[in-house]
Nucleic acid binder design. Sequence first.
RNA 1: GGCCCGUUAGCUCAACUGGUAGAGCAGCGGACUCUUAAUCCGCGGGUUCCAGGUUCGAGUCCUGGACGGGUCACCA
Length: 504
Amino acid sequence: MEETSELLLHRREKLKRLKEKNINPYPYSFKRTHTSAEIIKNFENLSGDESEVKIAGRMISLRRHGKTLFFHILDGGGKIQVYVKSDEVGKEKFELFDLFDIGDHLGATGKVFKTRTGEITVRAADFCILSKSLLPLPEKWHGLQDKELRYRQRYVDLIVNQEVKKIFLVRTELIKAIRRFLDDSGFVEVESPILQPLYGGAFARPFTTHHHALNVDLYLRIADELYLKRLIVGGFEKVYEISKSFRNEGMDRNHNPEFTMLELYQAYADYHDIMELYEKLLNAISKEVLGSSKFEFEGNQIDLTPPWSRIPFLESLQEHLPISKGELDFTRLFYNGTEEEIRQLVIRLKIQVDPKRPRGKLIEAIFETQVQPNLIQPTFITDYPIEMSPLAKKHREKEGLTERFELFLGGCEMGNAFSELNDPLDQRERFEQQMELAKKGDKEAQMLDEDFLRALEYGMPPTGGLGFGIDRLVMVFTNTHSIREVIFFPQMRSVENPAEGEEE
RNA sequence: GGCCCGUUAGCUCAACUGGUAGAGCAGCGGACUCUUAAUCCGCGGGUUCCAGGUUCGAGUCCUGGACGGGUCACCA
């Protein structure tokens, strides 16, 4: 705990000397009149009159010149320069800067003017310390680069890397725009349980916890789906929820154990209606947040102007396989091919997947490696095989398929939707098939939820549903390439104290 | 979990085939009354991620471990 670094000792010594001068280094409030952004925006008005402004923020740079000095403070909206002259504030006050450090919060009062070099500046008539900083900030040119430190100490990252703050502001604006769009479209925002006795609505392993009073194990939700559909049964016709879900799986550039999802359900709609809704939604929020339907992602110009292309799943495979249709008809393979033939195809394409996995997983692997990376512009892939979609309605025309689509954007999956399965008997069979998979060791197979089936038995209207990950959407909109860049406090392995005994 | 890469001053980075661990910024002392990567003079600052090993000698080589990044597996 004892820090002996002289950098830290200097700051503690300055803190002590401030106290000896009867200056409270941590006062209670400061009556700010303007932010930095307001001063810069209203400079013409402010510089004309004699009124003074009061500003506050963190000192991020300091240039001393004998009996004058300049510093920049950073506040919530940006930074602004302050000029202090010994003659104007008094020698004793001026020398307080001997006790201030970069990183301290300061308040200043004064008139606004422009320096010889043209920078809008507050000429301090008075100033005070608002909070003493005891730790040095990273340097001014390179900021904080170390990713580990940036994620573990996001507060420092946010202070010194302003573009990081912008990413999170886009995130906030994006969520607000989604809410606005859905609210204006007649959707009702609802909340469903995070602690659930059964988990469902997605293929994923859950986190488990325990309720002491009830003495039952509960799961953290992996999806909202089954509860939101209960609300459709209950008579809500358009609902949505934006919330955290939790999946107890591997972590990488695209996966954090807790992440934010949107799910929405609309009665009397099918997946065609939901496609139109999603086109309008993304296009609207893009215009609202980025000011355009077009933006850059990983070197590609992405254009969200509707309508987006719609390609059936089996056709997309045919199109992108490096094998001609004459040689291999994927639709025929899908319907008439043996599991062995599909396995041979996986091996021929040199796809790294365990060939013993079930047929559905093999087809999925072919899609993910052969098709998905090519889907840069927004593309709906539709009509997925039934074994991959236990909550989707059977396709009204195509045997063995469901009325389901996924959206792809910049090579990323960006949403999943179906004409929701509302036939309770069919749903029961699908759950039973999932339980068979679970018995065979599939840890992501879905559980049979009797209460959900009872709800369906009361009758759920035809319903279209959609879910997508907010974090990944933010990544695409901000042209960032790791989910950790769009989550304030991503999950990190804790650095264990070597003095502690190991416990595994 | 497999493989590859990384970890050196508060921060950003150097240090050849093993031979006294350096720079810039930040800090400290001094000069400077419109600077802005301020400038000028001087000074201090290190468990080279941890634990072993090889060696006369290890930041550098070897083994094990921690953490991070990438990638594959896994994953709507």
